Simulated assay, not measured.
Amino acid sequence: MKDDVENTNVRLQIVLNSAKVGIFEYDVVERKHVYLNTHWSEIFGFEKNYIESNTRDIMAWYENRIHVDDLEKRTRLYEKLLLGKIDEYNLEIRVLNSSDEYKWVKSFSKAVKESEGQSVKKIIHTLVDISNEKEKTFEVEALKNKLKELDTKK
């Protein structure tokens, strides 16, 4: 049984590392992070130790790095998550990195409760950098618009 759990953990770690998924676990009651992996901090261009040693409330730090145009939607979803109105949300937002440039990330957050009907105790939050995919999407859209413009000039 112990070997099965260890093997599952190894497989999971390999998948997370290869996909470069950033993971952040937040204790809602204590208002502090419980777990932060290296990929999560790398998305922002910081070392994990730098964030942990220079930031008192990592959730507040993270929220301050969200693009102003994305913050309201994310805040509404996060509040619904805390209130138990939703169990999870998935969102694409821009976050500020250490070079003061915005990166696009796919953000997924899941509420953890001790039992059904209980208040939210923790939030598991994942991030994946999707900047390259977004950039390609924007390029394709720009080319489509140019083609459309050329078509209308004919």
Rank of each mutant, 00 (worst) to 15 (best):
Y78F: 13
K20D: 09
D100R: 09
E135D: 12
E114K: 10
Y35I: 05
M1S: 12
K121H: 08
V68Y: 07
V105K: 00
E133V: 11
T8D: 09
V29N: 14
N145I: 07
I43W: 03
N97I: 06
S131K: 04
V28T: 08
N145F: 08
L77Q: 08
L12N: 15
T38L: 09
Y50E: 15
T55G: 03
K134Y: 07
K110V: 12
V29Y: 06
E6P: 00
Y102F: 15
K85Q: 13
N9Q: 13
I58Q: 13
Y62F: 13
E42D: 12
V21G: 01
T152F: 10
K121T: 08
N17F: 05
R31T: 12
N145P: 02
S119K: 15
R11A: 08
N7P: 01
S53E: 15
N97R: 06
D70I: 02
K121S: 14
D151V: 13
F108I: 09
E135T: 14
S109E: 08
N145L: 13
S99E: 13
N49V: 12
S115P: 00
M1Y: 08
D27H: 08
I124M: 04
V140W: 10
L143K: 15
F46Q: 06
K122P: 02
V105D: 02
E63N: 10
E88Q: 11
D3Y: 01
L96Y: 02
S109L: 06
S131F: 01
K80L: 04
Y102V: 02
K122N: 10
K154E: 13
N37C: 06
D70Q: 05
K148Q: 14
R31V: 09
Q118M: 10
K48D: 10
I51W: 05
V140Y: 15
K136R: 15
A142L: 10
K80R: 10
Y89H: 09
S53G: 03
I124T: 06
D3V: 04
T152P: 00
N49F: 07
T8A: 09
G117I: 05
D69P: 01
T126S: 06
E47A: 13
N7W: 00
L12K: 11
L71F: 10
K134G: 04
R76D: 12
L77S: 09
K2S: 05
V95D: 02
